[in-house]
């Protein structure tokens, strides 16, 4: 009997302890939940949180602004670089720094034809006038600094282009509208007629693809300087700045 009541009481107390602590914990978490808070506290919490939220959204706005600014700057940089690259390509083409390919006309002059350097100059001038975009004579590109002349030693007279001896057959290649170029040369009373009077008949050939070589030597400038006019107003500022960059 004694044994028994001890056991029962202990079991009941154990269960009681479990129940009590469970309830204690549950009540505690319930009371700390939002539904049990006082209204003033809730109002304060809401105000606090909405303030925080507003601050954070301002921060987001600020950060996105900075992000877009950064992206814009990057895009501008890229634009600038690609502009410069484009400009560089164009300048390379103009100054003859690169090999060029395109349709055009070839003029072949053989050894037996009585042709002087002045005729070559005339042909080249005529080709430029007829809309040629790039011209080379054998392996010499005609650039802004090109000179067509002659040289002689004790036995012979040579044609020279850019102070390089030109071997026969002389092949003048011009990229451009082949038909126009041909017409420019064969116009009645034109160069071809003129040459025919002397018994020279250069061979004209229209081609779909001819290759004009790059110039072999880069020009060096020791004396010239770029002339920069004084900047007058801010509206003229921008293009001037652009030029500056391009020339750098």
């Amino acid at each position: 009997m004694k044994q028994k009541w001890y056991l029962t009481i202990t079991v009941v107390f154990l269960l009681m302890g479990i129940l009590l602590s469970l309830q204690f914990r549950a009540q505690e978490s319930f009371a700390s939940g939002l539904t049990m808070q006082r209204t003033e506290n809730l109002i304060a919490m809401v105000r606090d949180l909405s303030n925080k939220r507003q601050k954070l959204s301002f921060e987001i706005l600020d950060l996105t602004e900075r992000l877009t600014a950064q992206k814009q700057a990057e895009r501008d940089d890229k634009q600038l670089v690609s502009n410069i690259a484009n400009e560089m390509d164009k300048l390379n083409i103009i100054t003859g720094a690169t090999e060029l390919i395109g349709p055009g006309l070839t003029i072949t002059i053989d050894r037996y034809m009585p042709i002087l350097y002045i005729d070559i100059i005339n042909i080249v001038n005529e080709l430029w006038a007829a809309g040629a975009e790039a011209i080379s004579i054998n392996d010499q590109r005609i650039t802004a600094n090109s000179a067509i002349f002659y040289a002689e030693n004790s036995n012979n007279v040579f044609l020279t282009v850019n102070n390089h001896k030109i071997e026969y057959p002389v092949v003048i290649m011009a990229i451009g509208d082949a038909a126009n170029l041909e017409k420019g040369l064969t116009i009645p009373g034109g160069i071809m007629d003129n040459l025919a009077l002397f018994g020279a008949y250069p061979v004209l050939e229209k081609k779909d693809e001819i290759t004009v070589v790059a110039r072999n030597d880069t020009p060096h400038f020791y004396f010239l300087k770029e002339y920069k006019p004084e900047e007058k107003s801010s509206s003229e500022n921008k293009p001037a700045a652009n030029n500056q960059i391009l020339k750098d």
Partner: peptide
């Protein structure tokens, strides 16, 4: 013994993850 039981119950109850 019963008091120990109560204590043990409280401990068990607080260590239970069930809520």
């Amino acid at each position: 013994l019963p008091l120990l039981g109560l204590l043990a119950g409280a401990v068990i109850g607080s260590t239970l993850t069930y809520e």
